[in-house]
Simulated assay, not measured.
Amino acid sequence: MSLNLIKLCVGCDSVEDLEDWIAFRLDERRRAGEPVEQYHTTRMVPTRATEIIDGGSLYWVIKGNVQCRQLITDIRPFTDDEGIGRCRLIFDPQVVRTDWQPRRAFQGWRYLKPSDAPLDLGKGNAELAEMPPKLRRELADLGLL
C-alpha cells in the first residue's frame, strides 16, 4: 500500500495559483534547456521513500485546507553546494483536486496514511465537485465542509 505526504503550499491562495506556478516553472525549465520536470526541494529525505513512490501523492494544504494532490514519481536525495543533504520530490505536474479537509499549520512535510487522506473531488460527495471554488472556500471558512 502506498504512503502519502502532506505539506503546506506556502505562497498560494488557490489551486489555480499552484497550477499557474507549475506551468510557469515548467516553461522556464523548457526555455533554459533543463529537464522539464516539476519538483520540490526539501531538507529531510523520507525514510519510507519506497512506499511513497509506489503510488503515493503529496497533498497540498492551501489556506488551511487540503485542496489538491500531486502524484510523487520519484524521490532524489542530493547534497547541495554548501554540503547540506537535501531531497527533491519529483511530481507528475497534473494537479488533482480533492475534497477539502481542514489542517492546522505545521512545518515541513508529514506522512499521510491513505485512510486519512481526503478523496479526490467528485469521488465522494459529487455535489462538492459541482460547487464553485469560491463557495467551497466560504463554506470551509465557516467550518461547514
Results as ranks from 00 to 15, higher is better:
D54T: 07
K123Q: 15
G55I: 00
D27H: 12
V96I: 14
T79G: 02
M131T: 11
R110M: 10
I22C: 04
R110V: 06
E138R: 05
S115L: 09
E51Y: 09
H40T: 05
G56S: 09
L26C: 06
V61K: 08
A129D: 11
D17C: 08
L5S: 01
A23W: 07
G33N: 04
M1I: 10
D92E: 08
W109V: 06
G33D: 06
Q94W: 08
R76S: 05
E28V: 03
G33L: 09
R76H: 10
F78T: 08
D141C: 05
L121S: 06
F91K: 02
K63S: 14
D20W: 12
M1H: 12
L5A: 11
K123M: 15
L121F: 03
P114C: 04
P35G: 00
G124K: 08
R48P: 00
D99Q: 10
E16S: 14
F91C: 01
R104S: 15
W21D: 10
W100S: 08
D81L: 09
V66Q: 07
D13S: 15
R31G: 01
R31H: 13
E127M: 13
A49L: 04
S2T: 09
G64P: 06
I75A: 01
R104V: 13
A129Y: 11
N65C: 14
R43P: 03
D13W: 06
Q94P: 04
Y59K: 08
A126V: 15
S2V: 10
Y111C: 11
V36E: 12
F106Q: 13
R48N: 09
W109T: 11
P132W: 00
V36M: 10
Q107P: 10
V15S: 05
E19D: 07
D80E: 06
L128R: 12
S57R: 05
V45M: 00
F91W: 04
I52R: 02
M44G: 11
L142C: 06
G108M: 05
G56P: 13
R43L: 03
D81H: 04
D80P: 05
D99N: 10
L8E: 12
I6E: 10
V96L: 13
V10N: 14
K113E: 15
V66G: 01
P102E: 03
D99M: 02
N65P: 02
I72M: 01
K123L: 13
A129M: 11
V95Q: 05
I84P: 09
P77D: 04
R31S: 12
A129L: 07
I53L: 05
D54V: 00
K134G: 00
